[in-house]
Structures are given as structure tokens and as C-alpha cells.
Write a protein that binds this DNA or RNA. Sequence first.
DNA 1: GTCACGATTTGT
DNA 2: CAAATCGTGACG
Length: 196
Amino acid sequence: MTRPARVPRLPEGLVLGPDFFARDTLQVARDLIGKLLVRGDRWGRLVEVEAYRGPDDLAAHSSRGLTPRTRVMYGPPGHAYVYLVYGMHHCLNFVCRPEGMPEAILVRALEPGPGVGRCSGPGLVCRALDVDRSLNGAPLVAPELYVLDDGYRPAAVHQAPRIGVDYSGDWKDRPWRFLMESPHLSKRLPKTAPRR
DNA sequence: GTCACGATTTGT
DNA sequence: CAAATCGTGACG
């Protein structure tokens, strides 16, 4: 008798569509914390994301206006914006707001699902889930790449300044990094001030 | 065409 | 702290 092959069981839940991503980008970022990012038969839970609000936000790629690279950011919500940084790492974003408003959310860290490697950092997320620029502009739909609400709700969502945007003047101080407590964050939660 | 630089990661 | 490594955007 043949034993049934061990098929990877996918989590169940609701796939988040364009309506979810068309809302205010900061609200979407907050709401994304605790959701599942699914890539084929691999997944991880979103524990850290960052909001980028163009074209005013000098930390956002869209602050330079519509260019070949930022075209996807200007496109419809619920699509992937994937780019290459430092010539070697990919970064995955979710396009937010209605078409014409170039805003997006960067995926910074996941709590890895079964068999998934370390996901603490934007480049590592893409490496672990095999995300590259072939997915740039792709709609967030099953089974390729999508976000799932499995009913999990984080106890608290924290905010902190964004990482690696020191070039953006005052915009670097905006607390547009959203995260939940997790051992899988790309950077530790800002320590509470020591009592003295 | 040329050039400076980056929404990072890793090793010293 | 510094290297790796190449696409992008600015300039001309």
C-alpha cells in the first residue's frame, strides 16, 4: 500500500485583494503585520514592513517622479514592485493606493514558515521566497505570490523610523516602519530607555 | 556615453 | 568598519 505523499499543507484564509491595498498606505502597512506572505508552497508571517509615500517622501523611489523603474509604483494597487539594490539583493514591495499615486510597502522581515530560511531583512526575504524582478509588476494572486489573512491578530503593532534612508532629510525620522514583537525582525525593537 | 550611488548583507 | 556588485537616474 502506498503511503500518501507528504504534500505541503498551505494555510487557509482570505487572499487580500486590490481593495485592501488601495487604502491609506500607513493603514495598509499596519494591517499587514501578522498576515501571511505566500509564494507557491512556501510562506512566512509578516512581522516588519515599511511604508513609502511618494512623490513627496524623499525616501521613496517615486520622489524622483515617473521613471522606468517607478512605473509599477504608479500602477494599480495589489501588485508587486520588485527592484535590485546594491547590485545583488532584491526588495519586494506591495503597491498601494489607486493608480497614479506612487506609494508602496517594503517587506522587511517574515517569521519563516516550514522549511523556509531566514527572512530577517528585505534581501533575505526575497532570497528565501525566491522573489526576483521577474515578479515586478505581477498581481498579488495565488499561487505565485499573495498575502493571506489567516485570522491571526498581533497583540500590538509598533512603529519606528525606517531603516537605511538617512539620505532623505527629515523624512528619515517619520515612524513609518511597522512591526510586531518577534525574534525575526531585521533590527531589534528600539530598547526602552533604561531606568535610572 | 559616463558616473555616483543605493529601501542590503556579510565578514573583519 | 568596509567590500561586494550592477541597475538606475542625472547630466550632457
